[in-house]
Design a protein around this nucleic acid. Structure first.
Lengths: 335, 335
DNA sequence: TTGTAAGCGTTATCAT
DNA sequence: ATGATAACGCTTACAA
């Protein structure tokens, strides 16, 4: 790998001049410019971004922390961020927090130590205090899916309580009174908030909230199926299933069929997130839209503006969950 | 951010000693060790990995190039790689190639310029020659999903032709003779290979391969639906749909239902990849298993062994596609 | 065991 | 407009 030194030598100019043509920082005569460019070309020179980063304290990289690298939700989020950043030659460095405090902290430290210019964080375990403290450091951050008042201007979030409420109310409005809730892991904020929304809607309908009607899943398909097993085995009757996310919803629908209880026809199922496959299930999944890709784009715009002073507009930070009515929730047929 | 210099000062030892305790490279007296550790603790010192990387030429980072950050397939691959690497304190840096030559090249350059210790590449546009050339450079690489003889020891792949063949033959064996193929983008190697497999099986069954029965999709749900529209509009008759991947398969199943042609009952549909939701569709999706997560783990093991000299075993590089028989392909009912 | 000092490949501040 | 030269934060011979 040739270095800037070799380029300067071949071009017959100083290091400084080469550096100047690289980042157009100051006036350089056309003549030197050409000599430098030719030399670079000839040597197949590639600037070493680690050295640039060390010297300039900037990396043109934005760090992203997500719980996992797979999953439709995180995929959309990462894509939303990456694609908008890429338009401005910014790169992303992604790391997984695996939903545990140690990995999340380590991930943040890693990203900071790599000189990321900013961090976009979707943390499940990091406390609000930690995040607030972090925001005071020298690496700007954007927090996804969490509303922290002290750093509201750095949050891009959606009202999960409201989402859970809307979902539940929709099922109730269709005449279902015997509901169960397949929730996400309770240690996750959004999972808990969605449960709260469920509870609100249920109470509002004059139904007693019953802990036993909430199953704690893990946001993966299999746990949606396990939840159905659980409810059936426990003899808990239900005609409506409110799910913490779409993945568990499809797992639940698949298992319901095995019990000969047809989704939509015999039991209403509603998801959350509106991931891409939700429109392709059978029955198509009624769910709550979570515009995570768009929100990722917004997060990116936020750093573009704050960190790189790039003028971008239409930055919105608080989003509303909306009902996506499809076919998995039908009116309860009177017996 | 405190630096190593401040630590050495506070601890009353030299820079070198601090460095030594950080990476246990040489003998350091217990006494100095403690002084250094205390100083680090007190200052909240975090080593700057950019500086480490520049000085040592190692980064403990492995670069990953994938087409997109979303999608079940890539998600599994990234997770497979990341989780096994993480066990050894190695981090991943991920970048998207967006299936075009420019972005893929830029992605590779970016990763190399970030001093990645190795690269795991899933490229769609980079030529074999480019990859072979790249492999001669000073950054070791692992190539996913492509078998390049010249660098076979760096490839982790699966026989896509065979996969396409197995899928097609399975549908044929169930009595279907009128087949259509919803393929991936033809510029992608795997998509083409799967088409070849389709062709082989069809020919073997004594059926003429008809170009018009192949629709070029883009591996996304929507194009599976579009393919069905296309075939129906064109008046092409079929009872079996062989898909290039699972996503298009579910898109196709959803659209078929709209035409009142029930998947499984009226028309057989087979997917490819066996992503996680394939078992939860209705009907459950018969497909070809592509153990991409496992293969990601293997790629990681390869770099662990080659780059870090970490003894890992059970490294296999060539995988076989296998039939996952579920419910979307049923025997053709005689009229 | 510990310290000194020369890199690593850039950027950036001064001069000129 | 261009060139020295000192950072940037750490590793690593080489000495002591």
């Amino acid at each position: 790998m040739p270095t800037i030194y070799e380029v300067s030598e071949l071009a017959g100019v100083s290091l400084a001049t080469v550096s100047r043509v690289m980042n157009g920082s100051a006036k350089v005569s056309e003549k030197s410019k050409k000599k430098v460019r030719d030399a670079m070309e000839e040597l197949g020179y590639r600037p070493n971004s680690v050295a640039i980063s060390l010297a300039s304290k900037r990396s043109n990289c934005i760090g992203i922390l997500v719980a996992e690298l797979d999953g439709a939700f995180f995929g959309s989020m990462m894509t939303g961020i990456e694609k908008t950043l890429r338009q401005y030659q910014k790169h992303v460095v992604i790391t997984a927090g695996h939903s545990n405090d140690a990995d999340e902290r380590e991930g943040v430290e890693f990203l900071k130590s790599r000189n990321c210019d900013a961090l976009v964080i979707h943390a499940e375990q990091l406390s609000d205090e930690y995040l607030i403290e972090l925001s005071k450091g020298d690496t700007p951050i954007v927090v996804m899916n969490r509303q922290i008042d002290a750093i509201a201007e750095k949050c891009v979030s959606l009202d999960n309580v409201k989402g859970g409420y809307i979902a539940t109310r929709h099922v109730l409005e269709k005449g279902h009174r015997q509901l169960v809730n397949i929730a996400g892991p309770k240690f996750k904020n959004d999972a808990m908030e969605r449960i709260v929304g469920f509870q609100q809607a249920v109470n509002e309908a004059g139904i007693d909230f019953d802990e036993n009607r909430v199953f704690e899943g893990d946001y993966l398909q299999e746990s949606g199926a396990a939840a159905i097993d659980h409810f059936v085995m426990s003899g808990i009757e239900f005609t409506g299933v409110v799910c913490g996310n779409d993945q568990m919803a499809i797992g639940a629908m698949a298992r319901l069929r095995e019990y000969k209880r047809l989704p939509s026809k015999d039991v209403a199922v509603i998801g959350f997130d509106d991931v891409s496959f939700a429109a392709c299930t059978y029955p198509t999944l009624t769910t709550i839209n979570y515009p995570i890709k768009l929100m990722g784009q917004q997060a990116a715009k936020l750093v573009l503006k704050d960190v790189y002073k790039i003028g971008v507009k239409d930055i919105r930070q608080i989003y509303e969950p909306t009902l996506m009515e499809r076919n998995s929730v039908k009116r309860l047929r009177s017996k």
